[in-house]
Simulated scan of single mutants.
Amino acid sequence: MITNNGHKLAFYVAPGRLPAIVLDAGGGLDASYWKKIVPVLAKSTGSEIITYDRSGEGLSGDVPGPWKAQNAVSDLAAGLAQLGATKNVVLVSHSLAGEIATYFVRQHPHWITRAVLVDASLPEFYTDSETAKLVAANEQQIAAIKGQPQTRATRQLLAIAEDYGPAHLAYHQQAWPQNVPATAIVSSQTPFTTASDAQLWRQAQQEFVSAAPNRRLVVAQHSSHDIPVDRPDVVINAVQETVKQVR
């Protein structure tokens, strides 16, 4: 258990050698999300594998107020610092964790040697028009949740929604550092059911990869947004290749 800014966070470590592989799950998910992947990577790479429960998930404590990626960066950095994983880290981030990864590598550029972004939420996606569309689409759902008895899961949803528009307009202005190589894995289905949103998601992934020569795009065929569950082999292969490039 790691303490940061007054709350506790649960980190889980499979011992091994460098580079350490850090797995960060998407919104509403905890370390157990990687259960199909951790044992395979531990055996095939021999690397130290680190997973954790973000605040409000799993065994980690709740934090009141709106969810902020910068606070999540602080939590992850505190855990990795205490575990001594502050160099040669391969960061694997799914969905919402892509926002944490983007801010993290900007703040700690010498900690992360390479990244694998798994259908990650990337800055390129959050244009003014798309952000406004998402905020409007979420309003009805958020209103319904507010009228229900609150659970830990609904409190987390409300925390993410509270500052969603301004937070993502600011996120749109961020850029992944040119010196940190990355593999972007995009699902064939994307997180969206509407064709226009799905196309913009794919376009954002392609724009991200095209912005630097040390990035590549992998398509996870026959997969929903939950690539680590539907196609763990795609994630495992990408991480294995990344580790080979570090060693």
Score class of each variant (00 low, 15 high):
2 I>F: 02
4 N>D: 09
4 N>I: 09
9 L>D: 03
9 L>Y: 04
10 A>M: 07
12 Y>P: 00
14 A>M: 12
16 G>V: 11
21 I>P: 05
22 V>M: 01
23 L>S: 06
24 D>R: 04
25 A>D: 05
25 A>G: 07
26 G>P: 08
27 G>L: 15
27 G>I: 14
30 D>W: 02
35 K>M: 13
36 K>W: 06
37 I>H: 00
42 A>Q: 11
47 S>N: 12
48 E>S: 10
49 I>F: 06
53 D>P: 01
53 D>A: 01
56 G>I: 07
56 G>F: 00
58 G>N: 05
58 G>V: 10
59 L>R: 14
59 L>T: 13
60 S>P: 03
60 S>R: 06
60 S>N: 09
60 S>C: 09
61 G>E: 14
61 G>K: 04
61 G>F: 02
64 P>M: 02
65 G>D: 05
68 K>Y: 12
71 N>K: 10
72 A>F: 04
73 V>A: 04
73 V>H: 00
78 A>H: 09
79 G>V: 00
80 L>N: 08
80 L>D: 03
81 A>K: 14
82 Q>W: 08
82 Q>L: 14
82 Q>G: 15
84 G>K: 04
84 G>H: 04
86 T>Q: 09
86 T>D: 04
95 S>Q: 09
95 S>H: 07
96 L>E: 15
104 F>D: 04
109 P>S: 15
111 W>D: 10
111 W>C: 02
114 R>L: 01
115 A>V: 12
117 L>S: 06
119 D>A: 12
123 P>D: 14
123 P>F: 13
129 S>R: 14
129 S>F: 09
133 K>P: 01
134 L>H: 10
135 V>G: 09
135 V>M: 01
135 V>D: 09
138 N>W: 07
141 Q>H: 11
143 A>V: 09
143 A>K: 13
143 A>W: 02
146 K>L: 07
148 Q>N: 08
149 P>F: 03
152 R>L: 02
156 Q>M: 12
157 L>F: 07
158 L>T: 14
161 A>H: 10
162 E>K: 15
162 E>F: 00
163 D>E: 15
163 D>H: 14
164 Y>V: 06
164 Y>F: 14
169 L>V: 08
171 Y>F: 11
171 Y>L: 13
172 H>I: 12
173 Q>K: 15
174 Q>F: 01
176 W>E: 11
179 N>K: 11
179 N>I: 13
181 P>F: 10
184 A>K: 12
185 I>D: 06
185 I>Q: 07
187 S>I: 03
187 S>L: 03
190 T>F: 03
190 T>I: 12
194 T>D: 13
194 T>H: 08
196 S>R: 06
197 D>K: 08
202 R>C: 06
202 R>T: 13
202 R>W: 03
207 E>N: 13
209 V>Q: 03
210 S>F: 02
211 A>I: 08
212 A>R: 05
213 P>T: 07
213 P>R: 00
218 V>E: 02
220 A>P: 05
221 Q>T: 15
222 H>A: 15
224 S>G: 13
225 H>Y: 00
225 H>T: 00
227 I>L: 05
227 I>R: 02
227 I>F: 02
227 I>K: 01
228 P>K: 03
228 P>S: 02
229 V>P: 04
229 V>W: 10
230 D>K: 05
232 P>V: 14
234 V>D: 03
239 V>H: 10
243 V>W: 01
245 Q>Y: 08
247 R>W: 15
